[in-house]
Design a protein around this nucleic acid. Structure first.
Length: 427
RNA sequence: GUGGGCGUAGCUCAGUCGGUAGAGCAUUGGAUUGUGAUUCCAAUGGUCGUGGGUUCGAUCCCCAUCGCUCACCCCA
């Protein structure tokens, strides 16, 4: 294949799809503003150690999915596989976490070297949100309420199911892991191939196995929730109370584990069943230990990320794609002199009506082809300028979606669009 | 990383039991010397993903490779 093409798993967003992205982005900006969160932007490229130290050396993300390479100084750099690490690094570096609370959000591309499939890309886009300095379940509930509101605003409230769990503290997991490994080793003969491999890498995952022959074994295994310390237990109970008070339905999934090492206490996922294997649209949780791990003062934190491509896929299950912008008028220009004066007239229209969207024909073409373009552009009106109009000092106006047609001077035309634009705003 | 399905025109696809290809849509022009979206006519457009093998001859069969896609794994 000699033709140039995009890197595997990295997609272009073309005009036919851009409406969805702009719609979603606008919804997210409005939502974060409603809860007092502020946008941050940080680099897509970071020192590799930032991710290995925060996400965890033994996670799949760090062990085999990172885009890592050396820069010209030999320093190892990595394209960010997730947003939390970079967000925390930036917040620490600018000293905005010390003895204060912060509510932050960000949006942009993330990179993971995985085999692409439905809902899984090598460059994908996440919206992420992080709340720092608040230790209680109230802020956990706030961000879950924020996501629930987003689904309502997007008309997806019936499409997503909330699952929650608590991972407790690091100590909780160490104690549970010890018991779990003991139990699994006793029953090692009953483990399937995947589970044997997970025994070494991530034994918690074994409890989440889809293999039906493993279910009896899993049912009797030590449960992480039984190992929670008092504080984690209270935190989890209070969160459930708050969710109930807010009227947010949830399910406790004791097998819910997040793939990143830094999570503590609350974890949650919003899941859809109709989207194939990658049905998790939004996931997150608390990570009280991460900031000390990265060299900051102990700071409680909680956040989540949502996959924009997955969310758009979900929107498409019930709605067609959002329309991208269509011009108000298409300017048909017939002949040399029309091209010359047409440019100026289009500028005068834009001067007088800054919100009017004027698409001017360029590159010539017959009347027929120019009208075809006008129709295809989605414009409501066509303006026509040719020798006849220039002689009469008028511009022909035609409603492409109705019967109306007339000839107007430029001043009359401005007045005409002023009133139709006004009607459009009122609608 | 493992496995399945698929690569033919800009797009969606047909087709050749092996003899170098067709439709619809789109584009351009015309029927209507200045009026689109309905109709009719015509034109433009393909190294049949790439490389190799078998064959007199391969787009078709075989092998490899790349890409897309779905699933496993994992995750947003």
């Amino acid at each position: 294949m000699t033709t140039l093409q995009a890197i595997r798993g990295m997609h272009d967003v073309m005009p036919a799809q851009i409406g969805d992205w702009q719609y979603l982005e606008a919804q997210l900006r409005a939502l974060t503003a409603a809860y007092g969160y502020q946008e941050v932007r940080f680099p897509m490229l970071e020192p590799t150690t930032l991710f290995s130290r925060s996400v965890g050396e033994n996670t799949d993300i760090v062990a085999k999915e990172m885009y890592t390479f050396s820069d010209r100084n030999g320093e190892s750099l990595t394209l960010r596989p997730e947003g939390t690490a970079g967000c925390v690094r930036a917040a620490l570096e600018h000293g905005i976490l010390f003895k204060q609370t912060q509510r932050l959000w960000y949006m942009g591309p993330m990179f993971r070297y995985e085999r692409p499939q439905k809902g899984r890309l090598r460059q994908f886009h996440q919206f992420g949100l992080e709340a720092f300095g608040m230790p209680g379940p109230d802020i956990d509930a706030e961000i879950i309420a924020l996501t629930a509101r987003l689904w309502r605003n997007l008309g997806l409230e019936t499409k997503l199911r909330l699952e929650i769990n608590s991972l407790g503290t690091l100590d909780t997991r160490v104690r549970h892991r010890k018991d779990l490994l003991e139990y699994l080793n006793v029953h090692a003969h009953a483990l399937d191939e995947d589970s044997v491999r997970r025994l070494a890498t991530n034994p918690l995952r074994i409890l989440d196995s889809k293999n039906p022959t493993m279910q009896a074994l899993i049912a009797k295994a030590p449960r992480l929730l039984d190992f929670l310390d008092q504080e984690s237990n209270d935190h989890f109970a209070q969160l459930q109370e708050l969710l109930t008070t807010l009227g947010i339905a949830y399910q406790i999934n004791p097998h819910l584990v997040r793939g990143l090492d830094y999570y503590t206490k609350t974890v949650f996922e919003w899941v859809n069943e109709e989207m194939g294997a990658q049905g998790t649209v939004c996931a997150g949780g608390r990570y009280d230990g991460l900031i000390t791990q990265l060299g900051g003062e102990a700071t409680p934190a909680v956040g989540f990320a949502l996959g924009l491509e997955r969310l758009i896929n979900l929107l498409h299950l019930s709605k067609p794609a959002q329309q991208s912008v269509t011009p108000d008028v298409y300017f048909v220009l017939l002949g040399e002199s029309a091209v010359q004066s047409g440019l100026g007239l289009a500028e005068r229209l834009r001067d007088a009506l800054p919100t009017l969207q004027v698409l001017m024909n360029a590159g010539g073409g017959s009347v027929k082809s120019q009208f075809k373009r006008a129709d295809k552009s989605g414009a409501k009106y066509a303006l026509v300028l040719g020798d006849d109009e220039i002689r009469a000092n008028v511009i022909a106006l035609k409603d492409l979606r109705g019967d109306f047609a007339t000839q107007l001077s430029i001043e009359e035309l401005i007045k005409f669009f002023e009133s139709t634009l006004h009607e459009r705003r009122v609608l």
